[in-house]
Amino acid sequence: MKFIKNILSDMHHGIVKHYMLFICPVVLATIVSADCVKKINVFLKFEKNVPAENSFGDIWFCIYGGMEKYIPTQDNPFKFPVIWTTLFVICALLVLIYPTKDMLGMGSHVIVAGGSRAKWWFSKVIWNISATVIYHGMVSINIMITCLVVGIRIRPGLNMNLQNSIYELDNLNEFYMKSTIPAAIFILPVLISVAMNLFQMTLTFFMNPNYSFMISCFLMIAAAYMLNPVMIYNYAMPLRYTEIYSLGIKYQYGFVAALAIGVLSVVIGYLRFLKYDIIKKEDN
């Protein structure tokens, strides 16, 4: 069995057959975009003395922005960023089960037919990356469609006054107004999502998929709680980049971190899978 056949099989069984699951990002992006447009209209109606430009970048920030730095005090309970968490949690959920499911039953025959475990594993890696990119791609396309429908310019701008009315920021002075956001900022959250989904997939070789998913959730909440470069999901929150927030983290390091986590996950997963007992797993 050729490697390309392995990939096509995974694309068919893991994406095409489960196309209903990929409606989730469309629904999510539609609801959030509609709500964001509603908030933009309210903002334009009431805020007469501040710059009122708005663009694709603003709606994108509503979804991917994350949250500002959290300062734990008794009168400031921690509230995780709902939209951001839902977006990344659903993405992690979509790529959680298929590899485990495919290892049992039909998948074990594919491994035998392929003649190599490496082909099976790298095919899963490509499937995981593709599924994550498609997921985020659908969100971005949906935002663009919303912009076209309501007549918002498709431009990578950021109006911090508008974001303030959406996120209710505590320290607006520490944020910068941007007429153009670098394209890299739009790419980094997707790369972090790809890297963390690969990490989650590798973890399923060491533990039950439910526990690996729990670890992903923990990392998301911990990142929202602590503005720290070690908490990798911080690089998926553009509201915390130094480009936008003066006390934030340098987003450029995020590319290195995503690459390192992705490569390490693929290598460790490969080494583990070479000696992984599929028959024992099937018995369970």
């Binding site: 734990p72 005090t73 008794q74 400031n76 309970p77 921690f78 995780f80 439910n210 998913f213 729990m214 959730c217 923990f218 909440i221 911990a222 709680y225 602590m226």
Partner: peptide, 14 residues
């Protein structure tokens, strides 16, 4: 306010 309580009350359904 703590991280422990935030994570605990997030993953409790699992």
């Amino acid at each position: 306010v703590s991280l422990g309580t935030s994570v605990y009350f997030f993953i409790f359904p699992i």
